[in-house]
Write a protein that binds this DNA or RNA. Structure first.
Length: 269
DNA sequence: GAAGTATCTCGTCAAAGAGG
DNA sequence: CCTCTTTGACGAGATACTTC
């Protein structure tokens, strides 16, 4: 595991005194002793271990590197795409339509089927969430009416968007979830069905809820994996460029050493 | 061109960290 | 303790490259 080496870098020998078996599975033990370890006994070893044993993320590692070495780019907190202008930001600049929900959130529907949801409390881009309609094609002419119901007891909210699709907002926990759905054929367009918690006792509905939760989890993990891989690539790139810089530095130092040697011990003919 | 192999990319799962 | 996030591991499919 490549990150084990990073743990080696961050780990302090004092950890030997308070290390748990679980921790040992992930961290290679440093055998050499450190004189300062004893003097630092005052420090809460649990706290220390907590800090040191944390599995470093690519973002943290790279930011650590970037603080040490100038010229190393930092991985930003929220970077939607690597090169160029992120598509959601670009579309955000010129949204086709902007709507406000009953809870005060703003929804921007851009060309290409991207839906952006922003919270009123958030400033600028940070509160934006982008959703892409998978089956978004050219919206039918005139289909720009948004209809939504008042928030139900469980926080579920639906509203129609162009393209005869439905955005379903389900506020489970503190993170609102949004889904793009085709409206059920049984319901006339514009009629909103919001499931109340009491109506979920039906086994079929429970199964549907479980499926929905699973799909949401998979979708989130899919995106997380993409982001993780992007960070990993960036991190590897960063390391490679750092190696290149250090090689040049090393070469220069060797040359300098040779020059100094020549000066100090001139050849006698 | 077909077959085989190597490499890449992506989705998913599981385990552990992080935070409330 | 629970939920969410992060990331290594794994498998499947796609693509590139090589050999015949």
């Amino acid at each position: 595991m490549w990150w084990h080496q990073h743990n080696l870098c961050f780990r302090h020998p004092i950890e030997e005194d308070c290390s748990s078996g679980d921790l040992e599975k992930k961290v290679t033990t440093i055998t050499e002793t450190d004189e300062s370890a004893e003097s630092e006994g005052i420090i809460d070893c649990h706290k220390r271990r907590e800090i040191l044993s944390r599995r470093p993320s690519y973002r943290k590692i790279l930011n650590e590197l970037s603080s040490d070495v100038s010229g190393v780019p930092k991985i930003e907190e929220e970077k939607s795409e690597e090169e160029g202008t992120p598509p959601n930001i670009a579309t955000m600049a010129v949204p086709t339509s902007i709507y406000q929900t009953s809870t005060g959130q703003y929804i921007a529907i851009a060309q290409g089927g991207t839906i952006q949801i922003s919270n009123p409390g958030s400033d600028g881009v940070q509160g934006l969430q982008a959703l892409t309609m998978t089956n978004s094609g050219a919206p039918p002419p005139g289909a720009t009416i948004v209809q939504y119901a008042a928030q139900s007891a469980d926080g579920t909210q639906q509203f129609f968007v162009p393209g005869s699709q439905v955005v379903v907002q389900a506020t489970t926990g503190d993170m609102p979830a949004y889904q793009i759905r085709a409206p059920t054929t049984a319901l006339p367009q514009g009629v909103v069905m919001a499931a109340s918690p009491g109506s979920l006792h039906n086994p079929q509905q429970l199964a549907e809820e479980a499926t929905r939760k699973r799909e949401l989890r998979l979708m989130k993990n899919r995106e997380a994996a993409k982001e993780c891989r992007r960070r990993k690539k960036e991190y590897v790139k960063c390391l490679e460029s750092r190696v290149a810089v250090l090689e040049v530095q090393n070469k220069k130092l060797i040359e300098e050493l040779e020059t100094l040697k020549d000066i100090c011990s001139p050849k006698t003919d």
